[in-house]
Amino acid sequence: MNPHRRKLLITATFIVVGVAAATLLGLKAFQENLLYFYSPSQIAAGEAPLTRSFRAGGLVVEGSVTRDPESLIVQFVLTDTIENITVVYDGILPDLFREGQGIVANGNLQADGKFEAFEVLAKHDENYMPPEVADALTKAGVDMSSGKGHLQQ
């Protein structure tokens, strides 16, 4: 093998290994960070995973918000008008969180059937309905229209 060819071979090997490693790394990160959406009906039907995080969304039921008097812990019920899911969150809710509003929460399903959220999202437009929630509600037979906006935590 002449020096030129060897250099070429080394370079090619280097590139192939590099690309393979980067792809593997990227796909792994990608797979781990996919958050699937489940509606309250799907959660009630046992379709949602117990072992990984996912997104749950629906309308905040009127009068369902209860706060812990000492801390920031807050509890509320999400509905798609057929089934409900109770969400627990320790933190500050976004500006546009309101009863009757459509919201999306990222978190995990607990053994007691409650959803522990690490993030609660509401869009920054008072007419906004998260598309997932709108879709879930449509499936449940509610007439919906959607809007757009910037995500706010």
Partner: peptide, 9 residues
């Protein structure tokens, strides 16, 4: 189905 790709990715 519906999903989103998180910031950690």
């Amino acid at each position: 189905g519906k999903l989103s790709v998180g910031a950690p990715y």
